[in-house]
Write a protein that binds this DNA or RNA. Sequence first.
DNA 1: GATGAATGAGGCTTCATTCAT
DNA 2: GATGAATGAAGCCTCATTCAT
Lengths: 197, 197, 197, 197
Amino acid sequence: METRTNRQQKALETKNKLIDAALRTFSRKGFKESTTKDIAKEAGVTDGLIYHYFQSKEDLLWAIFDKYTLLHSLEETVSRLDSNQPLEHNLTIYFQSLFRSLDESQDLIVMCFGEAQRNDDIRRKIQEIIGRGAELLVTFLEPKVRIGRRELSIAVRNLQTAMVFHFLTVDRFMEGGKARQEYIEISVRQLLKIIAE
Amino acid sequence: METRTNRQQKALETKNKLIDAALRTFSRKGFKESTTKDIAKEAGVTDGLIYHYFQSKEDLLWAIFDKYTLLHSLEETVSRLDSNQPLEHNLTIYFQSLFRSLDESQDLIVMCFGEAQRNDDIRRKIQEIIGRGAELLVTFLEPKVRIGRRELSIAVRNLQTAMVFHFLTVDRFMEGGKARQEYIEISVRQLLKIIAE
Amino acid sequence: METRTNRQQKALETKNKLIDAALRTFSRKGFKESTTKDIAKEAGVTDGLIYHYFQSKEDLLWAIFDKYTLLHSLEETVSRLDSNQPLEHNLTIYFQSLFRSLDESQDLIVMCFGEAQRNDDIRRKIQEIIGRGAELLVTFLEPKVRIGRRELSIAVRNLQTAMVFHFLTVDRFMEGGKARQEYIEISVRQLLKIIAE
Amino acid sequence: METRTNRQQKALETKNKLIDAALRTFSRKGFKESTTKDIAKEAGVTDGLIYHYFQSKEDLLWAIFDKYTLLHSLEETVSRLDSNQPLEHNLTIYFQSLFRSLDESQDLIVMCFGEAQRNDDIRRKIQEIIGRGAELLVTFLEPKVRIGRRELSIAVRNLQTAMVFHFLTVDRFMEGGKARQEYIEISVRQLLKIIAE
DNA sequence: GATGAATGAGGCTTCATTCAT
DNA sequence: GATGAATGAAGCCTCATTCAT
């Protein structure tokens, strides 16, 4: 019994190693440019084993999405925002959390951006990344601001998009969090100007 | 002599046909997924001819950049902004021009976003897309607003990034310009709240 | 001790299950096209077990021949023919028995025909199918007919070949035995015309 | 113009070389066991070229059937039979022609027998081989014999089947035509006993 | 005895690139 | 300049076989 469990455990680990290796490889080189040999090597196993666990290279891609839920900590963050605190404080917390989520899902998001152009399923994933967080925040902000939901939605969505893009092209290549913190503070203050009465 | 010139003319046309065909193909399917056969077919020539004009498939990629300067009409637009007009008017004109530039360079931009992940030169191209326009506008706006250049730069850059992304993921899939116009108007008004005294 | 015997019994059953599964699979898909996974699945065991009982996939093929002797009931049939009965009666009994033998060995024969081209050992098996029965019958008939053994042998062999082929390409795809019976009757009468004085 | 024709000519030859090489390889080793490398090597070209001319390995199989019509000389032979000559003479001529046709199509027929089990299209081809010739001969014989068409058809079909099988398993492995000639003579005489009044 | 994870050679196919015509 | 036949490396995937448990 113990033995059985151990073997299954090991197999599960191998499968996960493959998924993670695939994610790293895909995010570094893109899906098409990543060879199954690359992935196997990155996972420390042989070529053929991929096909013991997955039907195809593409199957490995979907396995990545099954395993990783994007920005899953964001909902939690929003649920813990304190309405008694000033807006500026809450927004800062939210966007800091967004950046931390981006840090965590970095590989996945980079890969998604690379593949979105060619793959509609992935394009939808990206829209989800931007959209989900935005909706959460909009719902939280709506009763607290004067502007209509449509305007609010555009303001939040625009800023969030810009932030994800900023993360992808600037932030993730920089050391230290000071620049990030400054960027967040300025952005939050600008958002406040838009939405505050 | 005349014949020679004609031939050269024809050759130039063929070369251009190949560059344009490559751009369309790359933007539709991505660089790796586009085969030289695809490109030749799209250009209406035979396989091997590509290698008469270009050293390699990658060479074709760089030829695209040599031929097309991104957003080249944007500078002209900024230079024609009228300082006597209200800011809202000028900003609207600017962003309308930005969207028209995106329309024109659609294939190129889509391709750049698709390939940026794998290719640092292309990544730089994208930063250029976002950055150049932003700098022009910042320079125009700076003497007219109260906030510092740093804040102004972030505001403009954030909005411009969001707009390019909006174009890529939403706008270009929609018919009719009403939604676009509304999106621009709202965004301009929000920018004004940030930068106006 | 008992347990041991039970285990041996169980092992033998598993081995037989594998042989039969292999036969079915080979006859359905051919040797090369049948994977060890196919066979294991058909036998209801796991992949690796095949190699506990057999050295290789090809070894399984030979095990099939070791287990099944083709047309083994034919000798018995011939030994029970009654010389006092008319030839027509005896021939009919013989060929009916041949078809029943073919029914029984259907999978094996189909497989042999499929693999004969690539494998000399199997080719010999087929010759045996046709030849053995023919010799038995020729020996039984020889003293009862006028024509020489050479002619008799050709006549019997030709008909038997035709019958095996008829079975493979026509008979085995048909429901009901009426057509078969008619085919046998006509063929027997024609054989009689050849061999009868 | 000349040049063009020469190149096209050469290309056609290469394509034919590939078809013939495939036929030889398939008939020797079977379809599945023949690798594209085998075929290319047999044709004296490189691997990839196969896919310049054919869509797939299977496509090559159908190209073989497009190129070669089985037993096409048989119809001609039947049309030239002389009703004024004795039956024995005509039958001998017919079956000699059959064997010559088998000689010519040897590779193709061997391949067909090898693949028939797995491939319905090929199974049909084989039935055609046996059936076509038989029908031609039956139509020629019908007005000249006493027995009904059903009996006649079975007699002819049985013999022809036996002959094709004899060719495949015995005749083609033997040197010299004497044994063949004797086999034909005996078989013809036996057929005459069946169908002659 | 039985399992199924792991290996690695090899097959079919694609495709950038070369080159004779 | 233009063609397209030819090359050969490399990719995805299959599968017989081994082996630790």
